[in-house]
Design a protein around this nucleic acid. Structure first.
Lengths: 136, 136
DNA sequence: ATAATTCCTATCAAAATAGTATGATATATG
DNA sequence: CATATATCATACTATTTTGATAGGAATTAT
């Protein structure tokens, strides 16, 4: 399952997309409009800023602004930042690889092969840009 | 992520496949051979039995036997029994549908559209039979 | 009778998830 | 400069899910 954190993150970025990236939009406003718990959103926004998805402006009239154009932000980036791996088992993850404890031979593991296929099927969907998502 | 429960379940069924479905195989043996905690496995086996994936024989020389031929058992069945929905958000699940709390309009929700596409991309992979999985 | 097994319910511990609290820091504006 | 409005940072808490264990009852081949 996608975490609420990730869902909120995507919603937030979609919201920022819709509102142009000229002026900063405050966490408060995003929280109200998108129905996201304010303090929880703050955490998410900080994480997105630290990963250079958006930048912040402090003080009154401050808020958050997307760094890149929506066409250059992929859904997969957001999900990886917030939720971690796309793959459903860690031994087929590109970005968060981990060996399975009990697995004796990765090369012949049938479960691994299946979930590798699965990951490859999922990736093209996750690779869509926020621009494409907006126009779905 | 796939739960260990689901992974153990698939491994168990693959093990039963390999050993033919003539004679019952005990939980003890499966646990040892496949490195699954015995008591945890018992729970999983019971669930699979209750869902008619396998049948049990009690007493000495007892154990578990697959009910159907591996070609007639789909990975997706096992995952749904053990882990629940395939879809990453509940509002696009066929078998475990739930409305998203905050969503105002499902028809226009872009996140929903994306995860519906995702689910449709995942399904063909999950629909493989255990027989196919064995021969991957 | 015995031992090997499934069957069942309850319980537990650890980890992940979702959210809250508190307060420091920065800054536009009057 | 004072104030109000923001972000920034860390730590905490509550709830749910996951992974596993405990203890014993019921069944049955030998």
């Amino acid at each position: 399952m996608l975490s609420k954190r990730a869902k909120y993150a995507i919603k937030t970025i979609l919201y920022l997309c819709r509102n142009g990236n000229n002026q900063a939009i405050s966490a408060k406003k995003i929280a109200e409009e998108e129905n996201i718990p304010y303090k929880f959103l703050e955490n998410i926004l900080r994480e997105l800023r630290q990963h250079k998805i958006l930048k912040s402006v402090r003080g009154p009239e401050g808020g958050y602004i997307l760094i890149s154009h929506p066409k250059d932000i992929k859904v997969v980036e957001i999900v990886r930042i917030v939720d971690g791996p796309i793959a459903l088992i860690p031994c087929v993850s590109e970005n968060f690889y981990e060996k399975c404890e009990e697995c004796t031979d990765e090369q012949t593991c049938q479960i691994r092969k299946l979930f590798d296929e699965l990951r490859n099927a999922m990736l093209p969907i996750f690779n869509k840009s926020l621009e494409e998502l907006k126009n779905l």
